[in-house]
Amino acid sequence: MNANPYLPVKVKVLEVGKQTENVATLKIESQGLNPAPGQFVEVSIPKVGECPVSISDFGSDFLELTVRKVGRVTGALNALRAGDSLFVRGPYGNGFPLENFDRRHVVMVLGGIGLAPVKGIINRYYLNGGVNRLDLLVGFRTPQEIIFRAELARWREKFNVVVAVEQDDPGWPGRVGLVSDLVKEISVEREAAAVVVGPPLMIKAAAEELSGRGVAKENIWVSLERRMSCGIGKCGHCRINDRYVCLDGPVFNYRQAEGLVD
């Protein structure tokens, strides 16, 4: 274990993929960081700052981060090019309990950048199987904000993928509305499990909708996002009740998450 847990390691950007005007996917060296799906890293640009970012995919020698530009650090990350360096520490958090999805019907309800923490998992199911059935319900604000377009198209070959946007757009052929409402339209098999990632209100709406459709709350996992400074249970920003999102989460079983009151 690193003696100074706040000291990040320097890594090189291997590849940059532009997802949208404001979202980039960075493939970076992994430098021995050995993550589990759903974990995150603290990413640094010296003199700009540090922020938590989910690991959207990884291999033995790379990590992939998908970053939406909302401020200083995420802005600087979006400006990086292949060959540049950045600093990371981690991986942190618990990740998804994948054993609970084995051979089950899995419903994923994902909002916007919330697709990032599960993209790698979905790819693995696409390539290697592992679940009986997968419904992917994905929401974005506008068609311009859709990320992982190529992946979404590919996943359609094997899974039921429904993409909805909140604001209609003349050229948009797909669904318009809230992603949580899409839950109403799918059939739910016995012992189904669900994953929900997105903004707080969407998580609540989708999880309640899923529960109403017969997915047991014990089988719903949500990934929470909170303001974080340290990522390692010290700074206090991410605490809800007696839980620390950075240590005990970001993935929580909904039975527990519904009882957490900010």
Binding site: Y6, P46, K47, E50, S229, C230, K234, C235, G236, H237
Partner: peptide
Amino acid sequence: CTCFTIQDIFYRDNPDCGERRRVWA
């Protein structure tokens, strides 16, 4: 009470250099 926030700054007269601090929050 022990909460804190981590922030970076750079020096105005030498923007190549700076520091990462934590301050009580």
